[in-house]
């Protein structure tokens, strides 16, 4: 059974239709890499999956929870669907540990001590054990993004959404973040990533989704799709990115 099931989702901002009937099935352990031109609707799709945007038609089921609709249980949904943003969005008034502990203590009502142990564990996983008590502003971009990943992991999500999480980073900091994501993939975490890192999409992804004009234009196993793109649009896109 699919962990995330997207069926014919349509989404408009006013007049502009951004998603024109998107369908996608994501099974447990999948690493789905979404690629596509700027404006093709990648971020919008991701944001729909955890209810940051509403959509007008179709359905999204994540971990069995219906996302859309008036009475959607977004709180329950978001406990199981984590998200990492391009701009990190760490809470600047909280230390690294507090950033990671916040949702655990507030949402899950985990005792402070236990939450801190979890924080230590996930921060170790992203290689930032020694930064527990640092402030976000004292960290490099790559470190901040790794804290953001740890912050999501602390909720033990069933699926993690990543929207161009290396795009705001200096080139030399990209790899440290990608290595963390790769490690998560190896451990079996279900990931849906929007990315411009084509090599990463090919090497780490289990599924590739090429979005074009608000639709899933082509999809398949990354290595095969990259080796032999079927549609002219993807051929052009792949050629344009130099792979």
């Amino acid at each position: 059974m699919s962990l995330v099931s997207i069926r014919d989702v349509r989404k408009s901002f006013g007049e502009l239709e951004v998603l024109k009937g998107v369908s996608l099935e994501v099974a447990k352990g999948d690493v789905v890499a979404i690629i596509g031109r700027s404006g093709s609707g990648k971020s919008t799709l991701l944001r729909c999956i955890n209810g940051l945007e509403t959509y007008q038609a179709g359905s999204i089921l994540a971990d069995g929870i219906e996302v859309g609709g008036l009475h959607a249980n977004l709180r329950e949904l978001r406990r199981h669907v984590g998200m990492v943003f391009q701009q990190f969005n760490l809470f600047p008034h909280l230390t690294v540990a507090e950033n990671v502990m916040l949702a655990q203590t507030v949402v899950n009502k985990t005792p402070k001590k236990e939450a801190r142990d979890t924080a230590a564990e996930v921060l170790a996983k992203v290689g930032l054990s020694e930064k527990m008590d640092a402030w976000p502003s004292q960290l490099s971009g790559g470190q901040q993004q790794r804290v953001a990943i740890a912050r999501s992991l602390a909720m033990r999500p069933k699926v993690l959404l990543c929207d161009e999480i290396t795009s705001a980073l200096d080139p030399e900091l990209v790899n440290e973040v990608l290595r963390v994501v790769e490690q998560l993939a190896k451990e079996g975490m279900t990931l849906i990533l929007v990315t411009h890192e084509m090599r990463f999409a090919r090497d780490v992804g289990t599924n590739l989704v090429f979005m074009h004009h608000g639709k899933v234009h082509e999809t398949g196993a990354p290595k095969e799709v990259f080796a032999a793109p079927k549609t002219p649009e993807l051929q052009q896109f792949v050629a344009g990115t130099g792979h």
């Binding site: 978001r78 984590g82 809470f91 999501s152």
Partner: peptide, 13 residues
């Protein structure tokens, strides 16, 4: 910044 709302939303607050 809007990102603070979004990040905390995505953490189920």
């Amino acid at each position: 910044p809007k990102g603070q709302w979004e990040a905390s939303s995505s953490l189920a607050l």
